[in-house]
Every structure is written in structure tokens, then in C-alpha cells.
Design a protein around this nucleic acid. Structure first.
Lengths: 244, 244
DNA sequence: CGGGTGCTTGAGCTGTATCAACGTCTGTGG
DNA sequence: CCACAGACGTTGATACAGCTCAAGCACCCG
């Protein structure tokens, strides 16, 4: 289980990089760049997908972070994924029409809107790009399944480690950072809400990880000091994050 | 949030019923029946999808139950979904190629094999059926997300109730049973492994539910005695299970 | 009958939650 | 430029949901 530590080029578009394997002809290239048009900036805290109204668009996240979560009736939240540059936002909602979950920008973001019409016409025009959409959805599902396993079968410590490794890995895949160190806009509360533990307990576990010299999360910076050991602790297996 | 209590017709094919909204032309009808050909019987306990070797097929589950799970290195398992008649098995694995999860038959099952070639050719021949596949995958992802929320944010009791309602609802959708009572081949261990609790604790919670007259699970039969109350307890919201 | 599989119950333990307080930083308005 | 409010992080004390270990029971099937 080695991780190919790609050099990263933050200048290259994350989305284009992720779907490159699905571009064979120039027609596909054109379609794909159309996907990336209609760019919009949004501020941290803005809702991109809301359970209130039926979704009008999916989005491609070019820059910034977002989180996809369910709001529970008692006011707590379960975040089921952090969405990173190159990822689709709300694709599931667009296909399923009415789902009780929200996507909110965690930082300033740059996105482009993708309407259902564009999606449909892509399906008619390019089987290869249809596959790309299918693959994106599958990868997202695999990520969510992994989070389910994380919460269902691992202790708090291992969960934390697993998620922080995953994020580093994903960022590295789209050329945003090295694997073992990245800027991380999450608060401890965000992280705790993704991991199914309280922020108080998270804080204690983070202290221990820091004391053991394994990992630090300070000042919006995650550093994985001993990646091999951490990967062993969390049983991290990146198959589910494979690119095509 | 009312549940339309459809009368059920176990004679009608579950898969055909589920994808009926995606059949407009007779050409699509033909393609869809092709999907359902190549039927095979398999025994309880047989592995349909294994993390060991790369997947050769996805399957359509016509009859019987299966479970999709991850096996952890310490020997425990996390089941992330029970697969019911009409569902695809291993679609995710087929698209993603190498995933660490297994699908095993829980009862005798009748399935039909679907190869990647068939899937690809469908994408070229019918945008509508491509959409159907996309939708199936999305629905499965939504189910997994709901299970994530279940485990992450609900107590043991509510989890149990939520899952048992969900299964009844899904069975009813494909004409296998009424919503509030169904034959259930799961052992308490299976259920516990899906819910992220021990079978010992599950057993105690089931006893309490039985004593309270809310729900019983005896002799492979689930009966939801007071569905409205149960739905309130579990905050069950069936949006994620919508049919097209 | 004997052994396996699944169910049930008990006793004691522990990981994580809850409640509460305090510290630190940052941005804002007087 | 200071004062203050509001987020966020940190720490302590205590409670409890769910776990572990262990044993007994009831089938069913060979």
C-alpha cells in the first residue's frame, strides 16, 4: 500500500485533472470545459444546496471547501463528507430531486453551476462523459461508505486519523497539497460533527495525538508527522479513492 | 409524511417494477429484459462480490436478501446495506474496479449477471436507461448516507427502529410485503453489525421494544405494531427512498 | 443424543457524553 | 485605542450508554 506522492501543481484546474481520463476526443474536451463555465464566487457560510427547496443546479467546486450534512431535529448535525476542489456538489440531490441534506461553503469558494439540462445533453452526446459522471457519483458513494465504516467500526482516535489522512490524500490527488501536510479550514466542531463524536472529546484525542508526536492540527494546519504509523493505526487503504 | 400503503403483488418482478419509470419505448423494454436474463440461483452464504478479486459482474437481485459489508482486520464486520429484491449488487464495485467490500447472499437468491460490456452498450443505446443506472446508483448512495446518519447521530434504540422501518418500506415498494410486517431472514448478529452495536445490546433493546408493544422481531418475522409512533421515534423520513 | 448456531441474561467496566468553566484571539464600535 | 462580544479551543468532574466477558438456554439437524 504505497502512496504515490505526486508533486502538486496548484495552478492546474482540480476538476479538469480529476476527469482527464474521460476525455478522449476534442468534442469531449469542449463539453468538459462547458461544464466549468458559468463560474461564481460565494462566501463562507452560504448554502449551495438546501433541503428546503428542490435543487436547481449541481456545482463543480473549483476552489475552497464545503461540507455536506444532515441537520437533525434536535439541532445537531451529521456531516457526511467534506467536499474538496474538483468535487461535484449536490449531484445526488439533482438526480434524486428531494433529499434532506444541505451543502454549505466552509470557505470562500469558486464554483460553476451545472443544470440538469446540461447533464442530460451530455448523456446523449458522450457515453464517455456519461461514464465520468457515473464514476464521480460512484466515488462519492464509496467515500460515504468509508465514512460509515469509520464511524461504525473504529474508535474515536482511529476515526480522526483516518479522516485526516483521507483529506490529505484527496487534496494531493487534485494537486492542492502534499499528502502529509495541508491547510485545513475546519473547526474542531466541524471535524467532530463529521466523526460522530463531541468536539470536547475530539479535542482530548487531538492533544494525545500531538503529545505522541503523530499528528498536529493547529492554526488551521494539519501535519501528519508519521504517516506510515498513522496509516497503520487507522487501517487506511486508499482503494476507495482511486482515480480512473 | 404519509406512507402510501400500496397493495403488494409478489408475482410482479421487483426489478422491472423499480425501473418502470425509465422505460418509454419498446427498445428500452427490450434492453431492460436483457438485463434480467442470464438468471442464476445461489445458496445462502455464497459470495457474490468479493474484495479479493476484481469484479467480473454486477448482479440484479430478483429474489432473496444479501448484505454488503466490509470485513475489518480484527475480524469484525460493518454491514453497510442489506440488499433486497430489485436492487443491484456490486454496481459500485464494477464501476470503481477495486473496492474493499463484499456482498454475500443471506438467503437463497435468484440473480442475473450484468457485465460491464452490457452496461457500456446501454449507455450508448439509451440515454433514458443510462439515467436509470445513474438513478439506481444515486438511490443506493442516499441509502448509505442515511445509514451513516443513523449510526452517527442516533441512539441504539432509534437506529434499530429506523432500519427496520426502512426495510419494510423498501420491501413494500417492490411489492414484497406490507410496510408494517415482513419476513426477515436476518440474525440479531447481522442486524447488530449493520447498526454498529453489539448483538448483546441489540437483544436488550429489542426486548424493550417488545415490552413496550412497539415492535417485535421473532422467528424471522418483523412486526411494527405502532408504525406512527415508531416513525416519530426514529425521525423516519422516506425522501431518500423515493421512486422516480 | 451431541454439537452447533442463535438467543437471552447478568455483572462489571470503559469510552465517550454532558455540563460547566475558563482562556485566547479577533473583529467591532464607542 | 480600549472594551467588549462572540467564536473557538482547552480542561476538569461526573454520568451513562453501550461494551466485554461469561454462562445458560433452546432449538435444529446430522
Amino acid at each position: 500500500m504505497e502512496m504515490t506522492m505526486k508533486k502538486y501543481h496548484k495552478d492546474i484546474d482540480a476538476f479538469g485533472r480529476k476527469l482527464k481520463p474521460f476525455v478522449a476526443t476534442s468534442a469531449e474536451q469542449v463539453l468538459l470545459t462547458e461544464f466549468s463555465s458559468r463560474r461564481r464566487h460565494m462566501d463562507a457560510g452560504e448554502e449551495l444546496v438546501s433541503s428546503e427547496q428542490p435543487p436547481r443546479f449541481a456545482y463543480i467546486l473549483h476552489e475552497g471547501w464545503a461540507s455536506a450534512y444532515r441537520e437533525m431535529s434536535n439541532g445537531t448535525r451529521q456531516i457526511f463528507d467534506f467536499r474538496l476542489p474538483g468535487d461535484f456538489l449536490g449531484l445526488l440531490s439533482l438526480v434524486m430531486h428531494r433529499l434532506d441534506y444541505n451543502v454549505v461553503a466552509l470557505t470562500e469558494v469558486v464554483v460553476s453551476e451545472v443544470g440538469m439540462d446540461k447533464l442530460i445533453s451530455t448523456f446523449r452526446q458522450s457515453p464517455l462523459l456519461s461514464e465520468a459522471v457515473l464514476w464521480s457519483l460512484s466515488r462519492d458513494a464509496a467515500i460515504i461508505a468509508e465514512h460509515l465504516i469509520n464511524i461504525g467500526r473504529r474508535g474515536a482516535m482511529e476515526r480522526i486519523v483516518h479522516l485526516l489522512i483521507e483529506i490529505g490524500y484527496r487534496l494531493n490527488q487534485v494537486g492542492q497539497s502534499p499528502q502529509d501536510s495541508y491547510e485545513c479550514p475546519l473547526t474542531q466542531k466541524d471535524l467532530a460533527e463529521a466523526l460522530g463524536i463531541t468536539h470536547v472529546h475530539l479535542n482530548r484525542m487531538l492533544r494525545q495525538l500531538r503529545n505522541d508526536g503523530l499528528l498536529s492540527f493547529n492554526d488551521h494546519m494539519v501535519t501528519l508527522h508519521d504517516l506510515p504509523t498513522l496509516m497503520r493505526i487507522a487501517e487506511f487503504e486508499p482503494n476507495y479513492l482511486q482515480t480512473r
